[in-house]
Simulated scan of single mutants.
Amino acid sequence: MSIRQLAAPLVATTLILLALGATAASAHTTLRTDPGNVLIAQPTTVRATTSDVFTLFAPGTGQLDCVNASFDLEALVNTSATAIPATLTAFTATGCTDTFPVLGFTGCHLHVNARVHITANSMGGGDFRVTDPVLRCATTGVGACYFTSAVANGAYDNATASLKFANVPYTPIAATPDALGATCGNGGTWSVVFTHVIGGTAGQTLTVLPV
Rank of each mutant, 00 (worst) to 15 (best):
T201N: 09
T82K: 01
A202F: 07
N153G: 05
T131K: 01
P169W: 04
D65R: 14
C66L: 03
A12P: 13
I40F: 01
G143F: 11
L56D: 09
L15V: 13
V77Y: 01
V116R: 02
G187H: 07
T61H: 14
T55Y: 08
Y170K: 06
I40G: 07
L31S: 04
F71G: 08
T55P: 07
A175Q: 14
D34E: 12
T61L: 09
G21D: 06
L39H: 02
F54G: 06
L39R: 05
P35D: 10
T139R: 14
D65L: 04
S162K: 06
H196Y: 15
P35L: 01
D132K: 07
T201C: 00
S162W: 12
C108F: 09
V197T: 10
V77S: 04
A120F: 01
Q63P: 07
A8Y: 15
R32G: 00
I173P: 05
T207E: 12
F91H: 06
T29P: 01
H111G: 05
T82G: 05
V211K: 00
R115D: 12
T49C: 01
F194E: 05
T82Q: 03
N37S: 13
T205Q: 15
C184P: 15
N186S: 15
V134M: 04
V193E: 12
D72Q: 13
K164A: 14
T92S: 11
A161C: 10
D98G: 13
A144W: 08
W190D: 11
N167A: 13
V67E: 11
T140M: 10
A182L: 14
N121M: 02
V46A: 06
T106E: 13
A179C: 08
L135M: 13
N68W: 07
G187W: 04
P101Q: 08
W190R: 06
T44D: 08
G60N: 11
D178A: 09
D157E: 14
T49S: 15
T183L: 11
T89H: 02
N37P: 02
A8D: 12
A90D: 13
D127Q: 08
R4V: 11
G104L: 01
A159C: 03
S80I: 00
T139V: 14
S191V: 06
T49F: 04
D178L: 03
P172W: 08
S26M: 00
T176C: 05
A48N: 13
A7Y: 10
T23L: 04
G143P: 15
L76T: 15
T97R: 07
G154N: 02
T195I: 04
L103A: 14
D52G: 13
L163I: 03
D98L: 07
Y170V: 03
H196T: 15
T14N: 09
T139M: 12
A144F: 09
P133Y: 03
V67M: 02
N113G: 05
T99Q: 08
